[in-house]
Computed example of a mutant assay.
Amino acid sequence: MKRLALILTLLSAPAVAQDAGLAARDAAEALEAASILLDTAEDSRDRVAALTDTVRAFEDGLAAMRDGLRDAAIRETELTRKLAAQDAEVAQLLGALSALGSRAEPQTLLHPQGPLGTARSGMLVAAVTPGLAAKAAALRSDLEEVTALRELQQSAAKTLEDGLAGVQRARTDLSQAIADRTDLPKRFTEDPIRTQILISATETLNGFASGLSQITENEVAEVMPPIEDRKGILQLPVRGVIIRQAGQADAAGVTRPGIVMATRPSALVTTPTAATIRYNGPLLDYGLVSILEPQGDLLFVLAGLDAVFGEIGDVLPAGSPVGLMGGDGGDIVSLTSEGGGAGRSETLYIEVREGGTPVDPLTWFTTE
């Protein structure tokens, strides 16, 4: 019902306000669909897949809602400043309209110079009145649009809050569903002692990746199909924007062979293709790391996670969740532009290694 009220508010708004809030209307409908997905995920045969789709639906809906609210807030600010700058002109306009009244009587137009003066004054009023009426109509339209935009923001803010609560519930349910999952195939088991020895003896990500084969036990033959035919078209593992290219120096002048993506707090990270978990856990200064192996001699390194899912050796289907970004995800809306990563406070480092050598991740992933 709250989302219905938002849609009705939009439909009753002036045309420009409707344009400014179109994304908010679409986002409200997307969040409504995500809520339905969340309710039906409980009965799904594959709860992990259903909840993964639900979290992504919420994330997309929330992003669209923030964009719609931002556009509406920016438009309202523009109109408010415009009206404030026209205070003197508005006062004069109101004075002129008050003097004329809604129905000017004949004696109002009498002129002390007689019929000729009266005729001239009538012609003058006839020429001025349409302009005054046009200015009054424009002023009324601006005021109506400001009112509509404010009502839109009030209604949509509540919808956004409900969406944030919904996605948090979906993330919690997803974490539990992953913990309860027992049907994943396993390529090998981890030797925890060897893993700790490797971690303690490793000083670089390159050295750790090179030694991954040493921490496995009972590894079966390669079972993952090659994915060379999908090179360059894989989806990035998280919703966000790229803020640092491969080989680009950071603020400290350090260069790394991977890319850095800015994401929303608590964003879901998924595997872009079927892959084996080679490692997940803390590593060096990268925070929590998940290393995926889609095929032999190819590794996807995802670093900077706040939570990791699954166990080393698990074979994940494409699109499976591998972790969550940090932050509480409770921000409502920012009036700043999203293009440079504003509002995306978390960063994910992505590195791709072919045959033990780092390559530009964008040779594998599409940014569309």
Rank of each mutant, 00 (worst) to 15 (best):
A318R: 14
D173I: 00
R75S: 05
Q245F: 11
G166N: 04
S155E: 12
A24S: 12
R169L: 15
R353A: 08
V308I: 08
G117A: 03
I277D: 02
L283N: 04
S35N: 11
P130F: 01
G340V: 06
E203A: 09
E293Y: 01
A246D: 05
T216K: 14
E29P: 00
G101S: 09
T118Y: 00
L124I: 12
I243A: 06
T9L: 07
Q168D: 14
A246Q: 07
G310E: 04
A73I: 10
L132N: 06
Q92L: 14
P226Y: 03
P282V: 01
R25Q: 10
A177S: 14
P192H: 03
L97V: 13
R194E: 15
S121E: 09
E145C: 05
D297C: 07
E59M: 00
A104P: 12
G356L: 09
L69G: 15
A50R: 02
A342M: 00
L37H: 06
G313M: 02
R169T: 15
V352E: 05
L305T: 02
L8N: 06
L174T: 00
Y279G: 01
L110G: 01
L164S: 01
D191A: 11
G329R: 03
A157L: 13
P294F: 04
L348G: 02
M261A: 13
I233T: 15
L236I: 11
T363E: 15
E351I: 07
M123W: 05
V241T: 08
W364D: 09
L4Q: 06
R45D: 15
R181K: 14
I242C: 08
R81M: 12
D360L: 09
T366V: 09
R171V: 04
T271M: 01
N206I: 08
G253C: 09
G240T: 00
D46T: 10
G313Q: 03
T9S: 10
T172M: 10
G329T: 04
A179D: 10
A275N: 08
E144M: 07
L316I: 03
T189V: 12
E105K: 14
F58L: 03
Q248R: 13
G319I: 05
F300V: 10
R150M: 05
F188L: 07
E78D: 13
L22V: 04
A49P: 09
E145Y: 01
M325R: 04
D191V: 07
A84H: 09
A251I: 14
D142P: 00
T255Y: 03
G287Q: 03
